[in-house]
Design a protein around this nucleic acid. Structure first.
Lengths: 159, 159
DNA sequence: CTATGATGCTTGCGACCTCAAGTATACAAG
DNA sequence: CTTGTATACTTGAGGTCGCAAGCATCATAG
């Protein structure tokens, strides 16, 4: 009655297996990377993602709505996330002169420094947990394959 | 001070690019698949994931803690998620006779039917959004690559 | 038997996110 | 100018999740 499972189990469906691996791999990696960032620099992975998008944007600024779309967050999500980054002094609001509807999110100088402080550690975390498992060719191939997936708006994409 | 970058942007780091693709691909796919499941059958992707794990488990049952680990959820997370499935009548609690600490999560007959109702649609969604983008060889390779990633406890894995 | 520590589970709390609704602005057509 | 529609953004309500704390149970050692 106890029973229980050969730890290895074969999927009944050929597609489902790789998809679920994908799902879980993401969950595990994300959690680990985020908690490392949090511990070392006090920012979540999402925070950092947003800061990096701004860092690589022209003049270190982006319309809030575009920012939301590239990091795959709802408009309200971006408002609240930026609230935190603004409180920390890394991002500032700036009204658009030509269109009163839009507000720019601008990286402050402090924000620039923050990104430059976090990025090396994050990249080495990524390398350890992700990059080191694949050869350069494999990475390229993986990126190519993932690029085929139907992301709505894949905007800017940096590390 | 301005600096920076054409809209198509090359990552400064070879690893970061594929990692971020991975991150966003997951977010977009998960959202789409979950909302389709929700619309068609009233269950979230997480709910369905849990139901499927039970479906493929011996006697359709699993210790709650093991279930939590395989779907990558905290113990409290599993408690609350199962609460919902229990309310819906798809999962039942069952005390373990040999160890009073553990509780089994057991799929009810109704739960079995639910899984069998949802699975075809879900598999075809996965095929459409994920599977159809890759050849069988690529899928196999993708699965193999993802399997190298450091998931803590990759337990049972089915579609 | 008792003390110690590990394990399984639940609960309170806070963080974060989405959806729906509301406000304000822009723009195009009549 | 007015109306209608699309866009940018914010706010309130509600859901999901993890962490820390707490309880009960088991296993082990003295």
């Amino acid at each position: 009655m106890s029973s229980q499972v050969l730890s290895t189990q074969v999927s009944a469906d050929p597609h489902a297996g790789s998809w679920l691996r994908f799902l879980r791999a993401h969950a595990a990696l994300t959690r680990e990377l985020s908690s490392r960032l949090e511990a070392a620099h006090g920012v979540s992975l999402r925070d950092f993602d947003v800061l990096v998008q701004l860092y690589f944007a022209p003049e270190h600024r982006l319309r809030r709505i575009d920012l939301a779309r590239t990091v795959i967050l709802s408009p309200s999500g971006i408002t609240r996330l930026l609230e935190g980054l603004e409180r920390s002094g890394w991002v500032a609001k700036h009204q658009c002169e030509s269109d009163a509807r839009v507000t720019w999110a601008v990286l402050t100088e402090e924000g620039v420094r923050k990104v430059e402080e976090c990025r090396p550690t994050h990249l080495s975390d990524v390398e350890e947990l992700f990059g080191s498992r694949f050869s350069p060719e494999e990475q390229e191939q993986l990126a190519e394959m993932l690029a085929r997936l139907p992301l709505h708006d894949a905007g800017v994409c940096n590390g």
